[in-house]
């Protein structure tokens, strides 16, 4: 009999994604679900969906979930984790959610070294509200609120979250990936797994940034969107591990005890 090599992750509910065709959110959800299954943390995980296209993430992920107001996920995650240190707490956030309205909450939860995980979807626009400029919109990129393209003198520069947060002493593991190719998807899954493992081991704050296509608001086909991540977006947001202090933190813990 043929071996089954692909099936629905156990903690991905039997629901049809509401995401547009070619959207990176669906892939990211699936990866989170696979990692939760593989690490066996479905019973202890608590997820926090954002205000954004992923607001309904609780319809898909079969773990305990509590909605956050726009940008407040990391504050809520901090409160949950402090009261439930054995829980595996993650917030799932878009770029508007994390880097604009919620920058204070994400910055300071990172700086406190909260032992939480953030899955950060960077699609360079505000998806849910119809394609306005995000903090991560790149220069010259056209959005509904930058119809002439993002202009550095009036709109400033794209915010580089991994670079910013990895400069904080409180953070332990920070990586930027992209889900625009099978290899990228595999890498992203590894990063998500590493981030959750970092939390399970009690090593502190972890964040995975995922460059994620939004064909609808980029006004491109899904295939062109994937190409654009390679040709343009990842030039502004280079992929890679920005910080991995997991071994160092482990060692210093062992030395202390």
């Amino acid at each position: 009999m043929a071996k089954k090599v692909f099936s629905r992750p156990k903690c991905l509910k039997e629901a049809i994604f509401h995401y547009c065709p070619g959207c990176g959110h669906s892939i990211a959800h699936r990866l989170v679900a696979e990692v939760i299954d593989e690490l066996g943390i479905r019973g202890t995980a608590i997820g926090i969906p954002p205000a954004g296209c992923a607001v309904l993430a609780y319809n898909y992920l079969d773990v305990d979930m509590i909605e956050a107001q726009h940008g407040r996920g990391p504050a809520m995650a901090s409160g949950i984790k402090r009261m439930l240190p054995d829980g595996i707490v993650f917030s799932y956030q878009g770029d508007g959610d994390l880097a604009a309205i919620g920058i204070a909450e994400s910055f300071h939860s990172a700086n406190r070294g909260e032992n939480i995980t953030i899955i950060f979807i960077n699609n360079a626009v505000y998806g849910m509200t119809g394609g306005q400029m995000a903090p991560t919109t790149i220069l010259e990129q056209k959005t509904t609120t930058t119809p002439g393209g993002r202009n550095k003198t009036s709109e400033g520069y794209p915010v580089k979250v991994c670079e910013l947060l990895s400069s904080l002493d409180g953070t332990t593991y920070i990586e930027r990936c992209a889900v625009n190719s099978p290899a990228g998807v595999n890498k992203t899954k590894k990063a998500i797994k590493k981030a959750f493992q970092c939390q399970i081991d009690g090593l502190g704050f972890s964040l995975v940034e995922i460059l994620s296509p939004c064909p609808t608001n980029w006004k491109m086909t899904p295939i062109d969107s994937c190409k654009w991540i390679d040709t343009t977006m990842s030039k502004v947001f280079p992929l890679g591990v920005f910080k991995d202090n997991t071994t160092a933190v482990k060692k210093s813990r062992e030395a202390a005890s």
Binding site: A68, A75, A77, I80, R82, E105
Partner: peptide, 8 residues
């Protein structure tokens, strides 16, 4: 929002 999370 921290107390909301903790309350939950």
């Amino acid at each position: 929002h921290m107390i909301t999370g903790a309350s939950a």
